[in-house]
Simulated scan of single mutants.
Amino acid sequence: MATTHVFAGLAAVAPVAVLAPEFAAVLGIGAILGGIAPDFDLVLTHRRTLHFPVAGLAVAVPAVVVAALFPSPLTLVLAAFAGTAWLHAASDAIGGGPEMDPWTERTERAVYNHVRGRWIRPRRWIRYDGAPEDAALGIVLAVPALLAFDGGLTAVIAACVAVSLLYALFRRRLVEWTPDWLE
């Protein structure tokens, strides 16, 4: 789920937000946007166009190094964005495929590796987005974020937890409700 990716990014930046609360808001915003951004390729070639599970590391690591050496709102928001976007793309390999009904296991494509020019196979540790184990992982990852952030970010995180639970509850039915032209 996109929300699980957001929670993973927020959990990753939570320690920095606790140590430097003056940067908590920009870290949270960068992590939320980075957790969502790769999935904007849903209307293109999903998990290929904006997902960079290997090449993204070449952007994320320097961004984090620059932010560590020169902490500012700009460097930290960019580092949180790049790191979380890479984490999103890399972690898609632990789930199922990108198709609308990944529980059918029709493909052996999880996420595209642009460096090698081929698809990484799905590991299916999380059977599909919205599976019960995905919802459970999302909730576990949301806890550090709920503890580290406050104010409006806490409300956004709590709302995303609710959306995650609703999505997981209805995930398998969504395929039936989806118009054919979206598949």
Rank of each mutant, 00 (worst) to 15 (best):
G9W: 00
V66D: 09
V143M: 11
E176A: 12
A25D: 10
G30T: 09
E133A: 11
V77M: 07
D92W: 02
T104E: 15
L44R: 13
P132Q: 02
L27H: 04
R124L: 10
L10Q: 02
V161Q: 02
R116T: 03
A17P: 00
D134A: 01
M100V: 10
A68V: 03
L141V: 05
A8S: 10
A2I: 12
V175W: 04
P15G: 07
I157N: 01
V156I: 15
C160D: 09
I139Y: 02
L166K: 02
V175S: 11
R123K: 11
T84S: 13
I126Y: 01
F70W: 14
D180C: 01
V13A: 10
L44T: 08
P21I: 08
G152K: 01
T3E: 10
H51C: 02
E133I: 12
V26N: 01
P73E: 15
A168K: 02
C160M: 15
H88C: 07
F7R: 00
R48M: 12
F23M: 08
R123W: 15
H114R: 06
W103I: 06
L50F: 14
V16R: 10
W177Y: 09
P53T: 10
V66H: 03
L166Q: 08
E22G: 14
G95N: 11
V18A: 09
L74Q: 12
V61G: 10
E99V: 05
I126V: 15
A158N: 00
V16I: 14
H51M: 04
E176S: 11
G138N: 06
W181E: 05
T75V: 04
P62H: 05
T45K: 13
R106I: 03
R124Q: 12
M1T: 08
L182R: 11
G151I: 09
F40L: 15
E133Q: 12
E183P: 00
S91H: 11
P53K: 04
A25P: 00
W125H: 06
I32M: 09
A93Y: 06
T154A: 11
H114N: 05
V54R: 05
V111S: 08
G97P: 02
A142H: 03
T104L: 15
A82R: 04
L182F: 15
A24F: 01
P53N: 10
A80S: 14
A25F: 07
P179F: 06
Y112A: 02
L42K: 05
V64A: 15
V175A: 14
S91I: 08
A136D: 05
E99Q: 13
P102C: 09
A37T: 00
A145S: 13
A159M: 05
L146R: 13
A55K: 03
L137G: 02
L153Y: 11
V43S: 13
A17Q: 03
L166T: 12
G9S: 03
I94H: 07
V61E: 08
V43E: 12
A55T: 04
R173K: 08
L33R: 00
S164T: 14
L10W: 01
E183M: 14
G138R: 02
T178G: 06
L174Q: 12
D129Y: 01
A31W: 03
D180E: 12
L69A: 09
A136F: 14
L27C: 05
D150S: 15
F170E: 05
T45H: 06
D150P: 07
P132M: 03
